[in-house]
């Protein structure tokens, strides 16, 4: 397994990032290095081990399913790069 600059470009596209050809060469080498190190995990037999995705041991505590408004529309729109006062605005998609 090795990360080529082409592969780095494809991964960037999946992550909605654009990288220059120079960056692709550099990132490919670095990712190859890092993933090579991570391959050390393969020397460990983990058959039968239940994956642990969270350290939470308690059952999630649920709160009553009651609708409430903590934040106003105006506050929610305040940090948006572009709005029409009611909605977030993005370039035309249709």
């Amino acid at each position: 397994m090795s990360i080529t600059p082409d592969k780095a470009q494809r991964i960037a596209a999946l992550a909605k990032l654009a990288i220059s050809p120079d960056q692709a060469i550099r990132l490919a080498a670095q990712m190859d290095d890092i993933l090579g190190y991570m391959d050390t995990l393969n020397s460990l037999d983990t058959s039968g081990v239940e994956p642990m995705y969270t350290p939470v041991e308690h059952v999630s505590v649920l709160r009553p399913d009651v609708m409430r408004q903590d934040i106003s529309r105006a506050d929610l729109l305040r940090n948006a790069p572009e709005t029409n006062g009611e909605s977030f605005v993005v370039p035309r998609i249709i």
Binding site: L35, M38, L41, N42, L44, T46, V49, E50, P51, M52, Y53, P55
Partner: peptide
Amino acid sequence: DAYYKKAAQVRRLIR
């Protein structure tokens, strides 16, 4: 499976 799931399994061993 090779990376994410594997790491989650090793996580349990570390814990």
